[in-house]
Amino acid sequence: MSRKKISWSQLSPRAKAAIVATAAVDAGLRAWALADLAGRDDAAVRGPKKLWGLGLGVVNSAGVLPAAYLLLGRATRMA
């Protein structure tokens, strides 16, 4: 069972808007999370700081990974 690929031009305006909005939210959350991570000490991050940075920089997760870092990955508030 194979799925037929749909080109960008075949998408509805609503589908195109949803894709663009999701990408914008992901980019904003990713930038916020990476900036926050860069300003934190290793002790203020739950888990390996380098692994968070790698994941946030490489993985495309539609905003899920940056949200997970912002909600769960920060051990303490910044001073």
Rank of each mutant, 00 (worst) to 15 (best):
M1T: 12
M1W: 07
M1D: 11
S7I: 11
S7V: 14
W8F: 08
Q10G: 12
L11R: 09
L11E: 02
P13V: 08
A15M: 07
A15F: 03
A15G: 03
K16N: 09
K16D: 11
A17D: 09
A18V: 02
V20Y: 02
T22W: 04
A23W: 04
A24M: 11
V25N: 09
A27M: 12
L29H: 00
L29P: 00
A31R: 12
W32S: 01
R40A: 14
D41L: 12
D41S: 13
D41A: 15
A44M: 05
V45M: 03
G47T: 04
G47P: 03
P48Y: 08
K49H: 09
K49F: 05
L51Y: 09
W52H: 02
G53M: 03
G53C: 03
G55L: 14
L56V: 02
L56N: 00
V58A: 13
V58H: 10
V58S: 15
V58D: 11
V59Q: 15
S61L: 04
A62N: 11
A62G: 06
A62P: 01
V64Q: 14
L65G: 00
A68G: 02
A68D: 07
Y69C: 05
Y69W: 07
L70R: 08
L71K: 05
G73F: 02
G73N: 06
G73H: 08
A79N: 14
